[in-house]
Write a protein that binds this DNA or RNA. Structure first.
Lengths: 243, 243
DNA sequence: GCTCATTTGTTCGTATGTATC
DNA sequence: TGATACATACGAACAAATGAG
């Protein structure tokens, strides 16, 4: 590794960027172990301290985690973000959280949808998966959500047993199978009057105002991988957000 | 500074905790400069590397920021969080942001309110400030918000010229005057039908469903310093949240 | 515009402690 | 128990930015 000849980016930063790229490119996947400090130092002809700095930075940013005596590993979503919960429903601050059951409704392939493909940064002609789910608390429907994914990114999704969608959070399912952790989410929050389909599923009168959340989830390199619409009943429980 | 005799917490961590305490206790305020590495090293009889580690950790956590050649300084909210925007209103992802004008409505002292004092972690008998504001976009009211603060924490708030509340974000005003930066926010999001007061101010029919956001803002040591209720019209613009 | 003292940033190397298997 | 790997701590040298004179 060239030590600041001509270009002025520090050595540790070059190494750091290199490792980060390998993670983002999928050459290293969540759970993988990277070579020990000493070895990396020899490989790149730099000191151990420099390697340590690069690795600690990546660990701070959530790309890696380290265990003393064991090694350094590539982090997944759970490691990066202790508490990723899209739907945490409370009746009040400090109040009780609703325990949500997931009900799988449907998963199907669809053609591209212009607006959504645009959000997902894929071409108009690329197909999508559409996943519809219902979240139920105390036998009462609370959230109806429709997710869209690029077919190209998640090939074979339709072969999953449907009950797997009801057992673990979607983002964990996708990370496990496709190696894509969630790095950030962006939401637009508003209200909307339910249409026929939605009001039937939520068992409320058509035209009722409900909370409407559009979300885009991102993975490495700020790449969007899911667009989701959620219709939420907030009579008894409200949605927690922290930032 | 005792170097790991008996107790096992590392030296750098003790120093780090010490500096953090001084910031959180207000002995150091946003903008203040701390002694240079060499001096701190001598003061505590440790090596420069150890001081560096303590300071870099605090810088990563947002307590400090450093400028090469100048020194190390205590960070305020703007330094800690580039983009703290409670109200960022977009018509769609990638769409245009509404430019909001703030209209000051009222600031008054009130008695404690049980539920709110509880959120703010102060005793029932402690008084509050109540601040009411209206956010306007394109001459149309978008957000009506009512904030509550502990009187004890913000003594003299009522002596501010009211137009100062219309010029800069509230959190900056409070930080500047009282030295309390915002470290995190917690929100509960739902919908509510407007009452008479609210519908008059927002110029919409009474009983219209609007987005309703309750928020608690925290400063150092996770201390709550504001409780806020926002009533938001989301016909044209929705609320952005990232996490 | 230049120089110099100060301060942080980068890099090296070494020694020792501690957790894991 | 020993080998491995990360964590802590020290110290030294030089680079790069800042601000004062």
């Amino acid at each position: 590794m060239n030590k600041r000849l001509g270009d002025s980016t520090p050595v540790y930063l070059k190494l750091q960027t290199k490792i980060q790229s390998e993670i983002e490119n999928g050459r290293l996947s969540p759970g993988d172990c990277i070579p020990p400090e000493k070895e990396l130092a020899q490989m790149h002809q730099v000191s151990v301290g420099t390697v340590k700095k690069a690795i600690l930075n990546l660990a701070n940013e959530g790309y890696l985690y380290r265990i003393q005596g064991k090694g350094t590993f590539v982090a997944g979503t759970t490691m990066r973000r202790e508490n990723l919960r899209y739907y945490c429903c409370l009746n009040a601050f400090g109040g009780k959280e609703a325990s949500l059951k997931i009900k799988f409704l449907e998963l199907k392939k669809t053609d591209g949808i212009e607006q959504i493909n645009c959000y997902l940064k894929i071409r108009h002609n690329q197909g999508l998966y559409e996943l519809r789910r219902l979240f139920i608390s105390n036998k009462k429907p609370l959230i109806y959500c429709v997710s869209y994914f690029p077919q190209k990114l998640f090939e074979g999704l339709e072969t999953f047993q449907t009950n797997r969608f009801e057992r673990i959070p979607l983002y964990l399912l996708l990370e496990k199978k496709y190696g894509l952790p969630t790095t950030s989410n962006r939401e637009l929050i508003g209200t909307v009057k339910t249409d026929e389909d939605c009001s039937k599923i939520l068992k409320i009168p058509q035209g009722t105002s409900v909370l409407f959340i559009e979300m885009i989830s991102f993975t490495y390199r700020k790449k969007p991988y899911e667009y989701r619409q959620s219709y939420c009943i907030t009579d008894t429980h409200k949605f927690l957000r922290e930032y």
